[in-house]
Nucleic acid binder design. Structure first.
Lengths: 95, 95
DNA sequence: GTGTCACTTCGATATCCATCTAACTGATCA
DNA sequence: TGATCAGTTAGATGGATATCGAAGTGACAC
C-alpha cells in the first residue's frame, strides 16, 4: 500500500469542498479515466465552460491537493493526486 | 461484504455537498463515535448552533441519505447510515 | 515583429446557502 | 389548563462562489 499523507482539518475541508462541485468531480473522473494525466485543453474539450471558469476550478482542485499542475510551453498538464484522494477517503471511512 | 446501494449521480452530488460543510461532517463524526445513533439534543450539546440551524443541517444530511431520523415523543433520534457513506466512498475510490 | 493560441486576472453578476430571530406545532408534565 | 421543552418553519441577512466577458501575459509559428 502506498504511503498516506496525513490530512489536517483544513486540508480535509478543502478537499470536501472541492469534491462538492459536480464539475470538479467530472474533471477528476476524466483524469482518472486517462491514467491520471490530461492537458487542460483536453479536459476543457469535454466540458462546456469558458477558460476563465476552467482556470478557477483547476485552482480549487490544486489548492485542495487533488491535482498537480505542470507546464509544457503554452500547455498545462494536470495530474490526479490519487494519494491525496485516498487519504481523504480513508479519513472519511473512519467516521 | 455488506450490500452496497447504487448511487445515482444526483444522490452522489447531494452526499458530496452534505459532506462539504464542516459542521455536518462533525455531526457525522459524533454519530460515528457513539455507535451510530444520538438524540438531536445530544448532538446539539456539542455544537454551538441554534435549533433552527441544527434542523437545517439534519435535513441536508437526511436528504443525502447519510442519516435516518426517528421520533420518540418530543425527541428525535438520528442514525448514521453507514452503507450510504460507504457507497459514496466506493464510488469516489473508482475515480 | 505579427498573429495566434493557452491560459490568467479582474471585475461584475447571480445564485446558493449557513446562520439567525421570531413565531409556531406538538409532546410532556405539573 | 398552563407551562415548558424539542424541534420546525418562515423570512431576512451576509458571505461564499460559480460563472462570464474582457483585457492581459507568455509561448510558439511564420
Amino acid at each position: 500500500m502506498a504511503k498516506q499523507p496525513k490530512l489536517t482539518d483544513a486540508q480535509h475541508a478543502r478537499i470536501a469542498r472541492a469534491l462538492a462541485e459536480p464539475r470538479r468531480y467530472e474533471i477528476l473522473r476524466q483524469l482518472g479515466a486517462e491514467n491520471g494525466t490530461l492537458s487542460c485543453t483536453a479536459v476543457r474539450a469535454e466540458q462546456k465552460i469558458t477558460p476563465a471558469t476552467m482556470s478557477h476550478h483547476i485552482h480549487e482542485l490544486e489548492s485542495a491537493g487533488l491535482i498537480e499542475i505542470s507546464r509544457d510551453g503554452k500547455f498545462m498538464n494536470i495530474t490526479l493526486q490519487r494519494e491525496i484522494l485516498q487519504a481523504y477517503l480513508n479519513r472519511l471511512s473512519k467516521i
